[in-house]
Nucleic acid binder design. Structure first.
Lengths: 389, 389
DNA sequence: ATCATTTGCGGAAACGTTTCCGATAGATAG
DNA sequence: CTATCTATCGGAAACGTTTCCGCAAATGAT
């Protein structure tokens, strides 16, 4: 054992071992009544490197270089009136030279604001949702906010995890479009206690008292249905999404309302619920085609399915719109491409995103805790898929 | 003036005014040689509220409640071996009850890692880019990373601003797909000094030494061109994007290579550069249609434009593919919908996103600073738009 | 009984800002 | 010539973690 001397009295003979702490031999000097361990060289290197290795320039670096305090540097960069022009110039010049960029984390930690919005969205691979995201992005950017997105992939579990992750001080507010499968909302309720504003959009739920942005579900369905009737359709099949979700219910309501208004009777056989998969859509259509009293129109509450319907009918050599008219809902780009072009209801996805972001930003900036419901005006778009001759 | 007494000696007669500091009267006690101001009541309230108002439970809250130190709480929650089972249980139980969530900002500040990836992408309204994003999102999520996206909107200035904003300690790595207009790369070079890994994908540039993910530009163009020739096309027009961008150059190169291979001569009149807008596409097609030696195929390096070409030719009653074959590049969903369905090259957008994210994560996790170039394998997709009878 | 080791925990620095409070010197007013 | 202002600046707390170092008591070994 090498001779160990006490760091205080420098004596060697008074030293005895006093156990091992964290894998390092510990010593005790009887004289000084002092316990200590011997530090590795690496520690010193580490301590030294701290001052030099940092890749990012900090306020400290600037302060030391000029010989002023950190607070002065901070104020100089924020153009605080207390700081002399001379100092400001010196600081700003050096900041430029060192290409100083403030550490956003540290800033957020103290200001308690990240200037970031969180978005949770079912998927990004179709334009339908990604265009909402685009709307969100635009108004956020205009207000100087960033956007963090999470894709829930239509999985409830992922949605829950995403909500948790985002709310841990990463964001100033949350925009949420639920999964098709989301049926419990405790994950939202818990987070609402944190005081971070939340806005639900497009697919919304009533259980939780957040502000909400809707599209014109009911009115849109009414317009579509009335349009089909106006074009002479007598038996209009309705292709819905899962039973539980809001948009299925509201669009069905609009459909039924117009049937009643036109003194047409509701036929349960004409209403189908699908999960929007190709297989289920085809199955539903097949069932309708086999009916003894034939249908003359199909109203799908999703453009995606409507396109699939048209493709399937064409494959079956059934004339669209003459034998069966088809209408969709949403106004996706594909509706313009398909032949015949798709009659649909434009829900204005971009506007939905924009409105949702606007409401959220308003809440954040003005500390507004009120609950708002907004419906984004849509528009009936008549194309050839419903124009019977 | 109310009587003021010295906070130290409590005397009143020794007090005199000594100026105003920050709008508050300041006093001076001759006896104690002490300057002071009178604090507002609100300050005390403020000080008190600090302990109670916080909406988020912190390590401190837990520590105080149990009567242990913050460091112990931290270790208990991280399952550190130094902590007794008893303490761990107590801490974890209380943490649950108070629904403690760590402050991600504070964590990141000390660990210097945010577990967040930044993505800058030209736009989100078309599936082409948003599906790449989807790929990125998936592999990031699987590795426990979040994704921050910024939309550059094809604006160079926005791209630059986004890069800056993201790199300020918000992210552990950056995925970048340039704007069509991006032609200077100083904003990237500056950021590379920070030591945060960057990966360029799809639209990449050679000036900056980052890792890059390509699609099979050249090979894809070769396959398409050869396919058209195989189907009997003799005069194949080429619709390119802006001249400067990488993908225009590389796809043109593939096209020319196959022409040469088949002993066909390059005709400058058959090559057009557009900005992918409808107007320019139509203009280019019109020019080709007016040629004395007629064309028999159009190869567009973008599916979007290819669809526009088909629609325009159909409007002009020109038969596709019999008079003019059309092929695209990218494999967007619309290519399946249009009639005739579009022959194209599937660049596997989702895979591009996935690969880019994988490389970036690898760099982050393994501190890998090497420069990698990866090409994502694509696939020729033959559909009816090129099947001359 | 004596010494060494292990177990469990606390203190404090560090991360990089912002901001409250206050100090000081020179300027100005009476 | 004082008493008061104004213009500039510095110190330090605070934000909520993580983690290095080290202490003290309990346990084990001889």
């Amino acid at each position: 054992m090498p001779r160990v001397s006490c760091p205080k009295c420098n004596k060697v003979e008074t030293i005895q071992k006093s156990g091992i702490v964290r894998n390092k031999q510990r010593f005790y000097c009887k004289d000084c009544n002092y316990n200590f361990t011997i530090h590795h060289e690496s520690n010193k290197q580490k301590a030294r490197s701290k001052t030099s290795t940092s890749l990012q320039t900090s306020l400290q670096d600037i302060a030391k270089a000029i010989g002023i305090s950190v607070s002065t540097v901070s104020r100089a960069l924020h153009n605080h009136p207390d700081i002399s022009v001379k100092t400001k110039n010196a600081v700003q010049k050096l900041a430029n030279e060192l290409s100083y960029q403030p550490n956003a984390l540290a800033q957020s930690l103290v200001t308690k604001s990240t200037h970031t919005l969180g978005v949770i969205i079912p998927n990004l691979e179709t334009t339908f949702f990604s265009s909402m995201l685009s709307g969100i992005q635009h108004v956020a950017a205009k207000a100087g906010y960033r956007v963090v997105i999470c894709q829930s992939d239509e999985s409830h579990r992922t949605e829950v995890a995403n909500v948790q992750a985002l709310m841990n001080n990463m964001i100033d507010g949350l925009l949420l479009c639920h999964t098709l499968k989301t049926d419990t909302y405790d994950h939202i309720k818990i987070q609402m206690k944190r005081g971070i504003p939340i806005v639900q959009f497009y697919r919304v739920n009533n259980e939780v008292a957040t502000s909400r942005v809707f599209c014109e579900d009911e009115n849109g369905a009414e317009l579509i249905t009335q349009h089909l009737i106006d074009k002479g359709c007598k038996r209009i099949a309705l292709l819905l999404g899962p039973k539980e979700i809001n948009i299925s219910q509201k669009r069905k309501k609009g459909y039924l309302k117009i049937l009643a208004k036109n003194k047409m009777v509701e036929d349960p056989e004409l209403i189908a619920h699908v999960d929007f998969s190709q297989a289920e859509v085809v199955k539903a259509v097949d069932k309708w085609l086999a009916l003894s009293k034939p249908i003359d129109a199909i109203f799908s509450i999703s453009d995606k399915s409507a396109v699939q319907v048209i493709q399937y009918l064409k494959k079956k050599k059934i004339s669209v719109p003459n034998t069966i008219s088809v209408a969709g809902f949403g106004n996706e780009y594909t509706g313009e491409i398909i032949e015949p072009q798709l009659t649909t209801f434009d829900v204005k996805t971009v506007n939905i995103g924009e409105e949702a972001a606007k409401i959220l930003l308003d809440k954040i900036i003005n500390q507004d805790t009120s609950v708002k419901d907004i419906t984004v005006k849509g528009k009936l778009i008549v194309r050839s898929s419903s124009m019977k001759k």
